[in-house]
Nucleic acid binder design. Structure first.
Lengths: 345, 345
DNA sequence: TTGTATGCGTTATCAG
DNA sequence: CTGATAACGCATACAA
């Protein structure tokens, strides 16, 4: 039956004694435009269906200089936040006929740079990237070189690279204010990679909330080197062993929060009785944690969709929309990890 | 400076008045083999570096009929199990010079089939797939058509498609036996998509453990339609409202477990005092759950690595290794979600 | 309504 | 040691 060498426009054309162009036109939906006879069109269509044939995208890409492929470069796809965003990106991209080449930079700048080069050599039409470091040159160069780029989660303030992120400032501000209104004075801010926009904005939200409410700003309460669990653990542990412990910890990322929990448990303390905890990044199953965690949720699905949309605006030359960047609202999910220290009225 | 049209073998060749072939040879590391003069080689190398140029993979792919691209088709990349496996696959594949086109079938057979077609038209060199349904024809056809395929997580017993999965039978057997040894009689088995190998094997493990220990096998205690949270919730809820409630629930997947927890909480019961819970699939942060969850862990990273390795065996024509399938050991993680019902000695 | 011819950028073959 | 050339499969300008 199907012992053909390998289907192609040519093989189909030969089978019916017609030309490759005709087959190409039919299969790329241009039968109308070229006024191909219904008979011919049918013939080709049926044969293609029978063979399960679709034109070779590689050849097409070479010819059209367009691969309909997007690069998605993520620091850690096993992190639930990024996994959710990635899913959204993939689904949204496929809707528009684009495939996703996934790459994991493993939170490593060098891998990020190498991978970008790799992706470029694969002729992606656009790149969605959650950058690892604070260096933006390589991305700006790409962008200026004509490759559509959209930043995810983190952005670079001094560039015009479009981005999609949450309103990190406001989310952090609200979380901190919530703690303050619950009567907390000594609030620690734990975790985050210091030079990333996410960390900077969240810390600023924290600071401004403290100031607004006249809380003294103890800089030694703002600690953290990255978004990892280990860092949350270490910094929390140190904080908890001080003379003047904080009464609340605000972690800047979901992994930081789990590290903090580990430290808290290890110190024999409990949440929220001994110490309150709030985290940026909500967790799918936060409600089932030992103490249901109060957290700042992000709109992962929307982030992914916007990223694709912003990229699409750049891909579609007709589009005039030149969005610079988008901040999405966060959601404050109050659960049970914060103790109310205000005197009962 | 770099206001070149677009770098290519040709543009570089012209710049130095040499031939495209020579440039190609240098840049594909065949300078030695073709005994290119050191001078020429240097020249080309430097220029390529200066431009950050790598040969166009699309053109190369067309010529070589090999894309160095693998398809990774997953039912839900936002599920932490698959996210971890995906990360491992991507890292392992990149090590070997392969890129990953990620596709999410959204637990939908139709999307799976369409996507496979899409991936094929993109000329992937191999496919790693965690199939949604119980239909294997499309995959067998692919495989017989010469496309290397490796199944992930689930396999089809009556085919010779190579697979990587956990030892689901043994993991489930151990979990069930553990419950029995803790004195449980009425043990429910909740969740799982009935016709998948994972579900079948896990249920068989459950059944055999029950039988081995002379427990009556109440078929109405084996319930579930899929691996989702909602199904875990519904089935658990129904079980808990029976006259003769189970004293323990064994869920067949991580999402099922969260559904079960939700039902348990909603019924005003507590784990493990009122009901014990064990789940297949461990959870990164199971230890921090309200009741630290006893669970059967899988080796996500190894699964991903093996998948790539098995695929690689097929890609590498020189290889004789024709592995049929691999089962990886599970790990039983005892925590605190199971109550000991045995009389104190 | 259809066909012919060209080129996309690369690699392999063959020829020097 | 190097070069010219053909071919990979497709899409389009041009021709009929």
């Amino acid at each position: 039956m199907s012992h053909n060498e390998k289907a192609s426009l040519k093989s189909i054309a030969e089978k019916f004694g017609i030309s490759v162009s005709t087959v190409s036109r039919v299969l790329s939906g241009k039968a109308r435009q070229y006024r191909i006879s219904t008979k011919t069109e049918e013939l080709v269509r049926e044969e293609a269906d029978r063979l399960g044939f679709s034109p070779n995208q590689i050849a097409s890409s070479l010819r059209l200089k367009r691969t309909r492929t997007l690069g998605l470069l993520i620091p850690d796809i096993s992190n639930s936040f990024f996994a959710s965003v990635a899913r959204s990106v993939e689904v949204e991209a496929r809707k528009r006929g684009y495939s996703i080449i996934l790459a994991d930079s493993q939170e490593n700048e060098k891998i990020e740079q190498e991978t970008i080069r790799l992706l470029k050599s694969r002729n992606i039409d656009g790149l969605i990237v959650a950058p690892v470091g604070q260096i933006s040159e390589h991305l700006e160069k790409l962008h200026k070189g004509g490759l559509p780029v959209v930043l995810l989660d983190r952005y670079f303030p001094n560039t015009d690279l479009p981005f999609v992120t949450s309103d990190n400032y406001k989310g952090a501000f609200e979380a901190t204010e919530y703690l303050i209104l619950k009567g907390h004075e000594k609030i620690a801010c734990v975790g985050g990679l210091p030079d990333t926009s996410t960390c900077i904005d969240r810390r600023k939200g924290y600071r401004d909330a403290m100031e607004k409410h006249g809380r003294s700003l103890d800089e030694s309460m703002i600690v953290g080197d990255d978004f990892g669990e280990e860092n949350g653990y270490i910094e929390s542990k140190l904080l908890l062993q001080r003379n003047k412990k904080p009464t609340a910890i605000f972690t800047l990322g979901n992994l930081n929060a789990f590290g903090a929990m580990r430290a808290i448990v290890e110190e024999g303390l409990s949440i929220p009785d001994d110490i309150s905890l709030i985290s940026f990044d909500d967790y799918v199953h936060s409600a089932f944690l030992a103490t249901p965690l109060t957290a700042v949720g992000q709109q992962m699905e929307a982030i992914g969709q916007f990223a694709v949309k912003l990229l699409y605006n750049q891909l579609d030359s007709a589009s005039t929309a030149k969005s610079k960047g988008i901040s999405l609202a966060t959601q404050f999910n109050e659960r049970a990890s914060v103790k109310d220290l205000t005197p009962n009225k």
